[in-house]
């Protein structure tokens, strides 16, 4: 099934070189792009999306794939596979990511999280991650990736990019994906062909499981939106910013009355507003 989901590389030895070149190019392009990301005229919190027309095209293709491939597959998956088995799949997928999470915990100097990640890995190792005993022991899974690490180090998102099949991203998180790939020990296990198939299947199953787990929510988000692309774009940014802060409240921004969301400074409650005429809109 791999071929459907990814530009197919051949099946020879030189593929690994080709693949590495592909990733190296992506990396270089992403690095160059983030270098020239200079959003000047953006409103606070707005996503920098200078390649919106191209992104919207990729998004339309992704949406088509979602409608005709991913959504039906996820539906069958959640209706035919019993929940405990699906939980084992999720648990395994989380477990194989442990080394990457651990390295990122350490790079973020989050020693408490590193300890939890390492303990989880050991606690779930006897059953190769399929059985999650760790959560019951109070060791709760939390994902980290190199995009988040860059964020913790102070890197802004940069340019918003809609990746084919992989969905919303930006220059920072795309770089993060590539670095995570090379950080991952499973990248270096087995022969090239087997490894390639493993990497593709793992991501495909991950995608199907994610879609199945959020089946109603995602369908709802789509059905109730007037501009689904824009909705996904802002949700992606808010969710990533939250992941970088590990869910902690945003620091207060300087304003008249400091609060964690400067944007709500513009909010005018009904009672203090006798005329709906000229309310302070954003200064362009």
């Amino acid at each position: 099934m791999g071929g459907v989901f990814w530009p197919r590389f051949g099946s020879k030895k030189k593929d690994s070189i080709r693949m590495r070149r592909f990733f190296a190019t992506t990396f270089l392009a992403a690095a160059l792009l983030s270098g020239c990301a200079a959003p000047g005229e953006l409103d606070e919190g707005e996503v920098y999306d200078p390649i919106e027309p191209a992104n919207r095209m990729v998004f339309a293709v992704n949406e088509t794939i979602d409608t005709f491939v991913l959504q039906p597959t996820a539906f069958v998956y959640k209706e035919t596979i019993p929940a405990p088995v699906r939980d084992m799949v999720r648990s395994f997928l989380d477990w194989v990511r442990s080394p990457v999470i651990l390295v990122n915990d350490i790079l973020q100097s989050d020693w408490a999280a590193a300890e939890i990640t390492a303990s989880r890995f050991v606690a779930n190792a006897p059953m190769f991650g399929f059985v999650d005993n760790a959560t019951g022991l109070g060791l709760v899974h939390r994902d980290e990736d190199f995009g988040q690490t860059l964020g913790v180090w102070g890197t802004e998102g940069g340019i918003y990019i809609m990746l084919p099949l992989l969905g919303p991203s930006n220059t920072r998180d795309t770089v993060g994906r590539v670095v995570d790939y090379f950080m991952d020990p499973t990248t270096y296990i087995g022969d090239d062909d087997a490894n390639f198939n493993y990497q593709i299947s793992r991501r495909a199953v991950d995608g199907i499981d994610f879609r199945a787990r959020n089946y109603e929510v995602i369908n709802d988000l789509k059905a109730t939106s007037v501009d689904y692309y824009a909705r996904v774009r802002t949700i992606y940014q808010q969710a990533r910013n939250s992941a970088i802060r590990n869910g902690a409240p945003a620091p207060s921004v300087p304003s008249v009355v400091p609060n964690s969301s400067g944007e709500f400074d513009e909010f005018v409650p009904s009672s203090s507003d006798e005329q709906t005429g000229s309310k302070p809109a954003a200064s362009d």
Binding site: E46, V226, A230, R233, I235, Q238, N241, S242, S261, F264
Partner: peptide, 15 residues
């Protein structure tokens, strides 16, 4: 951590 008001505000602005 995803704000409904901010999300709709962005979506409406984009449209």
């Amino acid at each position: 951590d995803v704000s409904m008001s901010i999300t709709l505000r962005r979506e409406y602005a984009s449209l």
